[in-house]
């Protein structure tokens, strides 16, 4: 890595002040596991990094209440993985954690970083989106709330201004809903996914009352698949229904080609895996 400056403010407010809305070369760093990859690859050459590691402790931690979980943006993925509250209120998140990157990255990477990075291959965003998570965002003008599904605008792009930081994620309790996340790799079993599909279902027996379905990795951004949801809502699960949901999902997704697969292939994967994810959720086996 080539030289840069490092600032370590002790408050979120101070961090926001150090960020410059017009300077691409100043960026916040939380765990740094994703940002450092970009720096090493020369894709991002910072003049200055603003570390969030020393900001107020209240931004690292998980609190459960009647309406779900409040997860501080600086909470590590490892803390999420181990949290009894997360396991109780959002078991699909706990299950997802095990397949997410590796132990060392989870020990360092943060929830806020995983969301703000805007990388469509990350596993956590689609799952939190399917759960209907909401973000608290802090900027120079104060706080605002944003549904997570409105965060991503494109490939590594979000609605965040360069001097805005995610401070907290609110995850509604999963309750009796069934959830699954399927990470589909196409080469080595441990790879970034070629496709991620997250589903959270309000179901009664074999009948789906309402579904939230999110596709990721194969697409330019984690995307809520509303047409697929419409197909599923109010129906009883069978092969025909799931195929119809898969067909609907691919129509509303914007696919990307990369070393993990061509666009036509990723379309076929999604066509199959939307149904498999629904089945896995119904059976409670989804990873």
């Amino acid at each position: 890595m080539i030289p840069f400056e490092l600032a370590e403010p002790t408050s979120l407010a101070a961090a926001v002040k150090l960020l410059d809305p017009d300077d691409e070369t100043v960026r916040p760093i939380a765990g740094g596991t994703a940002l450092m990859l970009m720096m090493k690859a020369g894709v991002f050459r910072p003049q200055k990094l603003v570390s969030l590691r020393k900001i107020e402790a209240k931004y690292s931690g998980i609190a459960a209440s009647g309406d779900g979980l409040r997860i501080g943006a600086m909470t590590t993925l490892n803390a999420v993985e181990r949290s009894a509250d997360v396991k109780k209120h959002a078991p699909v998140v706990t299950r997802t954690m095990r397949t997410l990157s590796n132990v060392r990255v989870r020990n360092v990477a943060t929830v806020g970083g995983a969301l703000a990075h805007g990388d469509p291959h990350m596993d956590l965003p689609p799952v939190l989106m399917a759960l209907g998570a909401t973000l608290t965002i802090v900027g120079p003008k104060g706080e605002r709330k944003l549904p997570l599904e409105e965060l991503f605008t494109g490939y590594y792009e979000t609605v965040l201004d360069k001097n805005e930081l995610i401070s907290e994620v609110h995850v509604p309790s999963q309750g009796a809903k069934k959830g699954a996340y399927m990470k589909v790799t196409t080469g080595s079993a441990d790879d970034w996914p070629a496709l991620g599909v997250a589903v959270v279902l309000d179901a009664d027996g074999g009948a789906i009352k309402s579904a939230r379905v999110v596709g990721s990795a194969a697409t330019t951004k984690a995307t809520r698949l509303k047409a697929a949801e419409t197909v599923l809502n109010g129906k009883t699960v069978d092969d025909k229904l799931l195929k119809a949901a898969g067909d609907a999902a691919i129509e509303e997704s914007e696919f990307i080609a990369d070393v993990r697969g061509s666009m036509p292939y990723k379309r076929e994967l999604m066509r199959v895996y939307v149904g498999r994810a629904v089945r896995a959720a119904m059976q409670g086996t989804g990873a």
Partner: peptide, 11 residues
């Protein structure tokens, strides 16, 4: 455990 290659020395 951390990955030392992705961990700034300052940290």
């Amino acid at each position: 455990s951390v990955s030392g290659c992705l961990y700034l020395a300052s940290f």
